[in-house]
Nucleic acid binder design. Sequence first.
DNA 1: CCAGAGATATGCT
DNA 2: GCATATCTCTGGC
Length: 202
Amino acid sequence: MGEPKPLPVAFYRRATAEVARALLGCRLTRRFADGSTRSVILVETEAYLGVEDRAAHTWGGRRTPRVAPMWGEGGHAYVYFVYGMHYCLNVVTQREGVPEAVLLRAGIPEGEKSPGLLVASGPGRLCRYLAIDSSLSGVTLSGPDLLLSRGPRMRFDVLVGPRVGVDYAGPAAAWPLRFAVAGCPAVTRPKGLKLERLEVRE
DNA sequence: CCAGAGATATGCT
DNA sequence: GCATATCTCTGGC
């Protein structure tokens, strides 16, 4: 297999909830210092809609050193540390000055000897599996360390529902915000998720 | 199923 | 200073 091709910048410039849905089935590749790689196919995502969204770190226009990557160009990573022991990886969307992002909640490891479906289930475990920490916050998702690419050809149903944590309502939250691949055991507590439609990617 | 522990960076008062 | 956090694991019902 050749080198996966990064997603184009235009991919990240759509409405954030739409990007979250489109990330399902995409491949996230982590490259290590020794040149080895690990990849997952994304199966669960969540949108965070910036200044209007009380659940977003940039709610109300917060602009602190930690969230600086969210204010930057789409297609970059925003990684934060939470609960004293977990990292969470977000995909920054849209353009500079629009601080929105998509939390990556689960992925299926690709090419493992014994396909451990559960090791990348949950945002903290996903980061642990890919050895992602806050030193990667702000890096491009089209670079050597992290690469987002179109996933394998597949067809799947999309589950849509509320976010897992506290799901603040608001003007911006009229959108569905959480997306998952139906029937995938790696998806966090599918409760509350409703089947929306069949997705075909070829 | 649910409550509690775990451990610390971050951001607000 | 202090409360909180886009979480995970374990142990008890």
